[in-house]
């Protein structure tokens, strides 16, 4: 087998590159080194840990579904829409990506909290109090995770262009048939990796959740919040749960990497 000769990386870049990689890898190594592997199974199966893990999985799945139901159509509209302000809308959608999650949580609180302008209405009209509920966790996670799906999907739709869709129309396909049989299948790889990233982001959500939903065991205390809570009293438990989150993250990368990270052609 022939190997392509490398054109060579300038030597100067190697040192910062290795340092950068070390910054990512070494903390995880530290975490593993600190873990008491003998107690690991017991630590991650304690009632509070199991409850947090279960809550995390449920809310992350729910918010991933919400991301799909809301973010999917949003991506299609942003990629294909021809209305005034579409460029502005594309920029606004990115806001949760760059906003500190704590600020996002605060913003949600002032929208849906009991004194927020929508929350007050929901409370008096339906008796719904969203903050500090599991629903609030899902909303906070959806808020921070949705841009990942929208960006991945919109990019794929825009680079695929509308030519396949135009061709399908000349073959007699109605707009809905075109969407179902051409637009969606072509965007499927991007949709898949976008959803995996959404799920990962939702699973790791902390700032917006603790501000908007608080940290109530079994109701809003997801795994990251449980790690934070244990960090003050039971360091071994916190470390074990952190390792669990690392494992989940590695699995997510393994699944999503080919499309989302390398942006390989589909």
């Amino acid at each position: 087998m022939t190997r392509r000769a490398s054109t060579g990386v300038p030597g100067l870049l190697w040192l910062p590159a290795v340092l950068g990689l070390a910054l990512v890898v070494l903390p995880v190594v530290g975490l593993i080194a600190r873990t008491d592997l003998a107690d690991f199974p017991a630590l991650i199966t304690s009632p509070s840990a199991v409850s947090a893990l279960w809550l995390s999985l449920r809310t992350a799945i729910a918010s991933t579904v919400l991301c799909l139901l809301l973010g999917g159509p949003l991506a299609v509209v942003l990629a294909r829409g021809r209305f005034r302000g579409v460029r502005l809308a594309r920029a606004i959608v990115l806001l949760p990506l760059v906003l500190p999650p704590v600020v996002g949580g605060l913003a949600l609180l002032y929208l849906l909290g009991r004194n927020g302008f929508a929350g007050r209405y929901l409370d008096t009209a339906f008796g719904w109090r969203i903050p500090y509920s599991t629903a609030a966790v899902v909303i906070a996670q959806t808020f921070v995770a949705m841009p990942f799906l929208v960006v991945a999907l919109e990019g794929a739709l825009r680079s695929a262009g509308e030519r396949y869709e135009a061709m399908a129309a000349t073959l007699g396909a109605s707009p809905w048939t075109v969407f179902r049989r051409v637009t969606v299948p072509l965007a499927l790889p991007a949709l898949g990796s976008g959803l995996v990233l959404c799920f990962a982001r939702a699973l790791g959500e902390f700032g917006a959740t603790i501000t908007f939903a608080g940290s109530l065991e079994g109701v809003t205390r997801t795994l990251p919040l449980e790690v934070y809570t244990l960090g003050e009293s039971d360091v071994d438990g916190a470390v074990a749960l952190s390792l669990l989150l690392v494992i989940v993250a590695v699995v997510v990368i393994a699944v999503a990497r080919p499309h989302a990270v390398e942006r390989s052609r589909w």
Binding site: T170, G172, A173, T177
Partner: peptide, 28 residues
């Protein structure tokens, strides 16, 4: 376009990459 009964063949063919040749031709 979908109600015109006007067929189009372009230089870059635009065959749907996710369908087999048979499914492409059966699409219409």
């Amino acid at each position: 376009p979908h109600q015109r009964r006007v067929g189009l063949v372009t230089q870059d063919t635009l065959l749907f990459p996710h369908l087999t040749v048979l499914a492409n031709v059966a699409f219409g």
